[in-house]
Amino acid sequence: MATNSSLKNQLANKQNTVAKQVDPKALGLKSLLNTPTMKKKFEEVLDKKAPQFMASLLNLYNGDPNLREAEPMSIISSAMVAASLDLPVDKNLGYAWIVPFYDSKKGHKVAQFQLGYKGYIQLALRTGQYKAINVIPVYEGELKKWNRLTEEIDLDLEGATSDKVIGYCGYFKLINGFEKTVYWTKDQIEAHRIKHNKMKDKTALNNVWKSDYDAMAMKTVIRNMLSKWGILSIEMQKAFSEDEETREVKDITDEAQELETIDGEAVELTEDEEPKEGEKPSAFEQESFDIE
């Protein structure tokens, strides 16, 4: 039979549990990654590589002021896409990027997953169907002849007369002998970039286009080449659909979890994550993040 004392204890325990619940939007990226739910999610995808991946994500976050302005859950959602493709998010490697951008509908910055040209090459090689695959910038003086119909190209890779890039060339050869060559002029790349630019000023360079134009141009060429003529595995099809897709911040936790939920619901903090009474969150934890 329940006594007044036991009922009081149960009520006190329940209140303590509720006190441990906080809105994930009030947490910084570091605190979110430290929750058991998040650790479990990344471990399910990456197994033993999860700690290293999560550490690299924090390094990326710490080193990018623009990314630190993005909504944290959008960063994690984008990172989860990269993790599911087993691609590093270190922007210096060029396999995948987590890019912040201002979402005018939401009124703040969010993060967006983007696949780099090296990521496309890596996923293609994993299929075991490609004997060779590459994409390069073509400099002034290197292009001797290009036939758009037969796709025959004559390049003199030792004949560059300047550092000016005039176009980009992609090539692959399959194990079965099929091969494909494509060539895009710099004007074609620019027309494509302007057409898909989400900024008000369509001609303005933004994000990776601004920091590494050649990488984005080569990505454009190899993405178009593979989507039209390449052999696409299920993994590659997923990468194509995820690349540059603007996603809503969504719940990526196990619905069966009690207390530990995200995106508008409560998140249970571990002891070392609980804010002490009267203690303000650090500047790091107060930051919000958005994707581009």
Score class of each variant (00 low, 15 high):
214 D>L: 04
215 A>L: 04
216 M>Q: 08
219 K>G: 03
221 V>A: 00
221 V>N: 00
222 I>H: 00
223 R>Q: 14
223 R>A: 08
223 R>T: 13
227 S>E: 15
227 S>W: 12
228 K>S: 13
228 K>H: 13
229 W>I: 03
230 G>P: 02
230 G>L: 02
230 G>K: 00
230 G>W: 00
233 S>D: 02
234 I>K: 12
235 E>G: 01
235 E>I: 03
235 E>M: 02
236 M>T: 01
237 Q>R: 08
241 S>Y: 10
241 S>H: 11
242 E>V: 05
244 E>H: 09
245 E>D: 15
246 T>Y: 14
248 E>H: 06
250 K>I: 05
251 D>S: 09
252 I>H: 12
253 T>W: 06
253 T>G: 12
253 T>D: 10
254 D>N: 13
254 D>F: 04
255 E>P: 08
255 E>N: 08
256 A>H: 11
256 A>R: 07
256 A>P: 09
256 A>N: 13
257 Q>N: 15
258 E>L: 07
259 L>G: 09
259 L>V: 11
259 L>K: 13
259 L>S: 11
260 E>V: 04
261 T>L: 08
264 G>E: 07
265 E>C: 10
265 E>I: 09
265 E>R: 07
265 E>A: 08
266 A>F: 12
266 A>G: 14
266 A>D: 13
266 A>T: 14
